[in-house]
Design a protein around this nucleic acid. Structure first.
Lengths: 273, 273
DNA sequence: ACTATCTTTTGGTCCTACATATTAAGGAAA
DNA sequence: TTTCCTTAATATGTAGGACCAAAAGATAGT
């Protein structure tokens, strides 16, 4: 007794129509995406199997797989193997959008000063919002985590990657407290794109301690609801970062972000474009 | 024709290794993406054909197509049919990032307030930077263009789309004067995704005049180097926008962005320049 | 009742064949 | 010689089959 009478409503509503030639994959992907975003398919629901979609769209399985791959890429679906497997609708996470932005930023040549002043501007707004909207336990957690970072730095066997990761996590907590996913989007994208700046701060020994001490103060100011002092701390952080980078630049003559290396390749390239 | 002597350098460098089973598609996609983002493949260059990649990765053509589809989805490559066709590396456009963000926000049912407060925060920083760094002729041009917008609004045959477009252009000029490309990109990304908000402001008759009058004042304050007054104008703009949306919401019981449809937006794949 | 094995479902991979688009080359006509 | 049409070559796009691997349930054996 198959559920032939209980087909989903997008079947009877003719929601899926045969794809046109030439761009069948895009066509199928667009129809499925429209069904998901339009609310006809809710998160957690399961799409028909690939072989069933193949006959519904009157197309080949490769086309269906291509479309599903695009949706998976966007974070709209999650596909599982095996019986009762298939494509399941997901809530899109902000990380997917951040990855797109990070991919774009990675291809651009960005001077570190531009990045710093942008981040500082964002951080200042986040601080104000976080003080106003952050929940008490969030603020307490932020303070506690800065303390953990402090003890981690003071221990001699401090792993550099671990410290940077903790700093990254703190920034994300911070951004989340602003209760505005757009700030989260930006913050995640920046972190994905450029890890090297914070790395620099935690690599130099005098700066590392100042940085975490500043973090502790910032978190406390946020927890206690002192916006002006928090802003002051943030400015202090970026002042330190600028100074640290300037010192490095004077020793290494390196003013750019190491986003991409194009030294070995461009020499032998005689592209007529 | 056997160009066996002129293999590309990523061949001899062992850049592409056979894919792992189970997630061969992702594996291939990751390797190709790494090659592009890492700078081994520059924009304009052509990847090997699908059938050649198929043998290089020691895999099937479906896997290669899946990987290329993922890269195409991200905007990293553009694929053309026919002789001299194939996958060509592209510069990623902001539009892809903004589409991802729009998709996320649409599914999260984000309130327009989040977008407004983010834009206001960005605008305030841009204003300060634009006053400090904008060239005199840029400032003059900004003032002149706000005048043009003013006269366009006063003429009765004002096309709504044209007005919104002029507003959009003004915002971009404004962002450019900050001499920081990140602000420009973020502004463009937000504009690509959410045109509807400004649209609302220019649709209502009382708000339209106030908005352009405010633009004129803002431009003059920027040109004359009055940061506090410029910031005041910007806040006034968003106060108006909030009020306008609130009125619309009260009449239509529509509190969110009308971003459910994605189909019409994805059409602008080509360069929006 | 529990465990091991089989069966079914479903995605993952590989393959061949054909369709279609685009470019380049070659030959006929002006 | 120039122009236009035809044809070939090369590439992606699509169709559909076959088989493998994994996951869940059904079944048989203990």
């Amino acid at each position: 007794m198959a559920n032939s009478m209980n087909k989903n409503e997008y079947d009877s509503n003719q929601l899926f129509s045969p794809a046109q030639v030439g761009r069948a994959g895009e066509d199928v992907a667009l129809q499925l995406e429209a069904a998901i975003v339009g609310g006809h398919l809710l998160p957690g629901e399961r799409l028909p199997s690939e072989r069933e979609l193949q006959v519904r769209f009157r197309t080949g399985r490769g086309v269906v797989r291509e479309a599903l791959g695009a949706l998976k890429q966007k974070g709209l679906i999650e596909v599982r193997k095996g019986a009762k497997g298939g494509a399941f609708v997901r809530q899109v996470e902000v990380g997917y959008a951040s990855q797109s932005l990070a991919l774009f930023l990675a291809q651009q040549e960005i001077r570190s000063e531009n990045l710093i002043e942008f981040r500082e501007s964002i951080d200042r707004t986040i601080a104000i919002l976080a003080i106003a909207r952050g929940l008490p336990d969030e603020k307490a957690q932020l303070v506690a985590d800065t303390r953990r970072l402090e003890t981690a730095v003071e221990s001699s066997d401090a792993d550099l990657a671990l410290l940077v990761e903790m700093d990254r996590s703190l920034n994300l907590q911070f951004a989340r407290m602003a209760r505005n996913p757009i700030f989260e989007w930006i913050m995640k994208a920046l972190q994905l794109g450029f890890r090297s700046l914070d790395h620099a701060l935690y690599a130099a020994d005098p700066y590392r301690r100042q940085c975490v001490a500043n973090w502790v103060t910032t978190a406390r100011d946020i927890a206690e609801g002192e916006p002006m002092q928090a802003l002051s701390c943030i400015s202090s952080h970026y002042t330190m970062l600028r100074r640290c980078l300037k010192e490095m630049r004077e020793t290494q003559t390196e003013g750019r972000l190491p986003g991409r290396r194009q030294g070995a390749n461009t020499a032998e390239r005689s592209d007529p474009c």
